[in-house]
Structure formats: structure tokens, C-alpha cells
């Protein structure tokens, strides 16, 4: 959904007509019907990777406060756990990329794991700022504490640096511009695409869906930090459910438009200049924590 939407907005911005936003779903359905070709070089890792990668992203989608808060699984949305599960999914993705034994898989894998590893401090620091501002160490608590009073960013404007740091992280984690080019056809510029290069059929569908799901998760998390309302709580009635679904779609649309705008207006950064992107994200996150600490003092 989010991937298709971004693609559609992007095509419109670039003056093209663009494919329908739900094209990815059609692709997944097609892929699921196709034959699953497995590399004869690989080991059991090739079979485990799609389940593990999609599994960890579903884990995040279920645990994080995206459309509802206060569920029974919310205790697992501890910020350290969330960061670690993100890293776990990258680990499996890279392992699977290597197993087929082509040089492209290795290339993409090496780059993907470099990014995932080096973004770890930024993610943790960003979450720490949120935790400090709200006093809850689960992300669910971070959002749900704000449902009644308006968005966290409106309540605590000093978190704007952390919010930007999280957005930069999201762009890197979901392999968007300026870190990776999602639409690339050239193997040498691929990062995420290269890691799923040697998969086909249902496994490819699972991996692609995992990556799209991750984008949706990050998009909704970012949106909920600004405006959590309306969100599902345990006592919601049927009408609220409907409005929540509508609002979620609206949130997705807005952020998708922003990403498409971003992707159309900036160029991809050379791999070796990613450190600038990385360092700026890190210092933004650090600045966010410092501001959060300072605001407590006053």
C-alpha cells in the first residue's frame, strides 16, 4: 500500500501517469502463484530468511502503536527490543542475500548491514528522547500517554530534532532516497534490491511485502508522533474503528506524498558519502536527547 502510493505520487510529480497505487498487491498475488525457484548453492538459510524477515516486521507492526494502543502485546514494545528486532530482520536479510553465492547479494548485503549497524545508535538515542519526554520506556506508552492531550510533538516541541532523526533513520532503514534508490534497475547501485536479488515467487513476495510493511510501520509511527488521534483503544466502539481506519489511511497518504516529494527533489547520495547523512542523523538524535534533558531541568 505505502510503496504503491509513494510510487504513484512520485510518478505524478514527475509528470508521468503512474501505475495504480495498489499495484504492489497485484504483484504479490502474482508472485505467490508462481513457482518458487531456489538457488542450488544455498543452504537452509535461504528457506528461513523470508519467514524471519517478514516475521520480524510483522512483530513490529503488531507491537508498535500504529492504529491501536494499550493492547496485550504492548509490553514488548520496549524501545531496546524494537531496535534489536529491526536489526534482527536486517541480519536475516543479509544472510539470505549471501547464501545464493552471487556477488550482487554480497554487495547489497554488505551495504545493507553497514547501514543497519551504524544506524543503531541513532535509533536508540531517538527513542531515548521520546522515553525521557514521556517517562514510559515502551513506545506504546510514548504514544498512548498523548492520545487525550494531542500529539507528542505539539506537547513537546523540543522533540522536533528527534523526529527528524527518526525520519532520516526511516529513510535509511526502508531503503529510500537518499540512501538507496528503490526503483533502480542497475545492480551496482542496489542495496535493498540486491539483497532480494536471488529470490523468486512466494519468497520474493514475502521479502518485498516485509520491506513495504516496514515502510508503513515507520510512516505511521512518524505520523502518530505528530497526531496520535484518532487511535484505537480497548474501549473503542464500531464508529471509532471506522474513523480510525479512515484517519490511518489519511496519515499514510500525507506521509507518502511527503516521501514522494522528497524523492523527486533530491539526488541519491554516493555510498561513501552516507557517513555525512549518518552523522547528521546521529547528532540530531543526540541533540534531541540533550534538549529533552534540558527541558526537564527548567
Amino acid at each position: 500500500m505505502s510503496v504503491g502510493g509513494v510510487r504513484w505520487f512520485k510518478a505524478r510529480l514527475q509528470g508521468r501517469h503512474g501505475a495504480v497505487p495498489w499495484l504492489p498487491y497485484i504483484t504479490y498475488a502474482n508472485l505467490l502463484k508462481k513457482e518458487n525457484v531456489i538457488s542450488s548453492t544455498g543452504s537452509w538459510m535461504l528457506h528461513v530468511t523470508p519467514y524471519a524477515v517478514l516475521g520480524s516486521n510483522i512483530f513490529l507492526a503488531l507491537v508498535l502503536p500504529l492504529v491501536s494502543v494499550g493492547g496485550s502485546l504492548t509490553a514488548l514494545s520496549n524501545f531496546i527490543v524494537v531496535a534489536a528486532v529491526l536489526l534482527l530482520s536486517s541480519t536475516f536479510l543479509v544472510m539470505g542475500a549471501f547464501d545464493a553465492g552471487s556477488a550482487f547479494g554480497g554487495l547489497g548485503g554488505s551495504r545493507a548491514i553497514t547501514l543497519a549497524a551504524l544506524f543503531e545508535p541513532t535509533i536508540i538515542l531517538t527513542f531515548i528522547a521520546l522515553v525521557l519526554a514521556t517517562g514510559s520506556s515502551t513506545l506504546d506508552g510514548v504514544i498512548s500517554g498523548q492520545v487525550m492531550v494531542g500529539g507528542l510533538l505539539i506537547q513537546a516541541p523540543y522533540l522536533v530534532l528527534s523526529w527528524f532523526a527518526l525520519m532520516l533513520t526511516a529513510l535509511a532503514e526502508t531503503a529510500r532516497y537518499p540512501v538507496d534508490e528503490p526503483g533502480t534497475q542497475l545492480e551496482l547501485t542496489m542495496m535493498h534490491e540486491a539483497t532480494v536479488f536471488d529470490y523468486s515467487g512466494p519468497y520474493l513476495a514475502m521479502l518485498e511485502y516485509a520491506s513495504a510493511l516496514k515502510l508503513t510501520v515507520f510512516v505511521l509511527l512518524l505520523a502518530n508522533l505528530i497526531l496520535p488521534w484518532p487511535i484505537l483503544v480497548a474501549t473503542s466502539s464500531g464508529l471509532t474503528v471506522f474513523s480510525v481506519i479512515l484517519a490511518t489511511l489519511l496519515k499514510l497518504l500525507v506521509v507518502m506524498f511527503v516521501i514522494a516529494l522528497l524523492e523527486s527533489s533530491i539526488a541519491r547520495v554516493r555510498l561513501y558519502r552516507i557517513q555525512e547523512f549518518l552523522t547528521s542523523a546521529f547528532f540530531m538524535a543526540l541533540g534531541g536527547v540533550s534538549l529533552a534533558l534540558l527541558s526537564r531541568l527548567i
Partner: peptide
């Protein structure tokens, strides 16, 4: 916090490298 998360992140890199080189492909 910054250093420890940096180190644990890179530890993932080192371990992935070890396993991928020794066992995969």
C-alpha cells in the same frame, strides 16, 4: 549509550561476516 549501541551494532556486522563467510554460499 551511544558507544555501546555503536559497538553492539558493529558486533552484528562482524558476526554476520563470520557466519556468511564460513557457512554460506
Amino acid at each position: 549509550v551511544s558507544t555501546i549501541t555503536f559497538v553492539t551494532g558493529l558486533a552484528v556486522f562482524a558476526m554476520v561476516k563470520l557466519y556468511a563467510m564460513a557457512f554460506l554460499a
